[in-house]
Design a protein around this nucleic acid. Structure first.
Lengths: 154, 154
DNA sequence: CATCTTCGTCAACCTGGTTGTCCAAAACAG
DNA sequence: CTGTTTTGGACAACCAGGTTGACGAAGATG
C-alpha cells in the first residue's frame, strides 16, 4: 500500500523537470529558442525594475563573478542591457530589453496555461490540495531562497 | 484563490531540494560526507548487481565518456571497484564496495524515515493523495528516464 | 577470414560555478 | 578634508561534469 520513501523525491524531480522542459519548449516556439532554464531564473531575478550585477548575484545566491558571467550571457543574447548607474559610478545597471520583457510575459502566460492544464488533469480540488500539501512536506525553516538551483547538484 | 502557475514548479523544486539536502545531511552524519547528490544517483544506477561503464552511461542517460569519469570518481571515493569482466575482455565491471553497499542501505533507511516524517507532517491520507497526484500532473508520455538530472539544467 | 559494432579511454572543448587579486568609487571615520 | 574601510565589477585561474571526436582492442556477424 505505502509507497517507498525514495519515490516521492523522484516524482518531484520528474514533475519539475517536465514542467520546465515544457515551458522552454513553448518559449522556443514563441521566439525564445536560446533561453535556457538557468537564464530564465536569472531573467526573473533581474525583473522589470532591473538591478545591478551584485544584486543579481545576491538574488541568485551566487558570487558576483558568476553574476557577471550570467549578465554577459544575457546581454549577448539581447535579453538585458548593461548601462552605467547614474547614481553610483561603480555600478552597472542591468535592464530588460524588449526581448527580455517579452520573455517574462510569455513565461507568465505559459505558466497560466499550464496551470489551467493541471487543473483539467487533476481537477481543481486535487490541484489545490497538491499546492497546499507541498510547502508542508518539509519543515521549511528558512523562507527557501528559491535560488542556487543550478550548480546545487554538484 | 488560485495560485499562480509559476508557484507549483518552484514548490516542487524546493521540496526536492530540501529532501535531497536532508538525505545527504544525514548520510554525511553516518559516514558518507563525500557522497554528492550526483554520485548518489550514480550509485543507485550501479546497484547491488553492478554494471559496466557503458551500462552506467545508459542508465544515467549520459555518454560513455561521462560515465567513465563518474566511475573513476566513485572508485576514487571507494564506493565501487573496477574489475575486468570475465566474459568480455573489453568491458569493465563496476561493483559496489562494502562502503558502497552501506551507502545504499543507509539511503534506503533514511528515505523510509523521511517517509514516516512526511506521513506525520501531512497525515497518511494527504501524503497518499500527494503521491497519487504527482504522476498525473504531467502527461508523462515516456516512462520518465529518472536520469540526466545533473547537467540537465544547463 | 573480413567486416561491422561495441567497450572503454584519451584529448579537447563548453558551461557555470568557485576562489584570489585588483582598482576605482563610495562610505565612513577622524 | 583626508585616511581607511567597504563595495562594485572585472580579470585570471581553476574545478566539476557534461559534450563530441578519434581510436585501439575485443566481440559479433557475414
Amino acid at each position: 500500500m505505502d509507497r517507498h520513501g525514495y519515490e516521492l523525491p523522484l516524482q518531484l524531480a520528474a514533475a519539475f523537470r517536465r514542467i520546465i522542459d515544457e515551458l522552454h519548449h513553448r518559449l522556443a516556439a514563441e521566439g525564445h529558442p536560446n533561453l535556457r532554464p538557468a537564464y530564465g531564473f536569472a531573467l526573473q531575478a533581474v525583473g522589470n525594475d532591473g538591478c545591478t550585477v551584485s544584486d543579481l548575484g545576491r538574488r541568485l545566491g551566487v558570487s558576483k563573478q558568476a553574476a557577471t558571467k550570467t549578465a554577459t550571457k544575457l546581454a549577448d543574447l539581447n535579453y538585458v542591457t548593461r548601462t552605467p548607474s547614474p547614481t553610483d559610478a561603480r555600478a552597472v545597471l542591468l535592464t530588460l530589453t524588449p526581448h527580455g520583457h517579452n520573455a517574462l510575459t510569455r513565461s507568465a502566460q505559459i505558466f497560466e496555461t499550464l496551470h489551467a492544464e493541471w487543473k483539467t488533469a487533476l481537477g481543481p480540488t486535487r490541484l489545490a490540495a497538491l499546492e497546499d500539501a507541498l510547502p508542508k512536506l518539509t519543515p521549511s525553516s528558512r523562507p527557501t531562497p528559491l535560488s542556487d538551483l543550478p550548480g546545487w547538484f554538484h
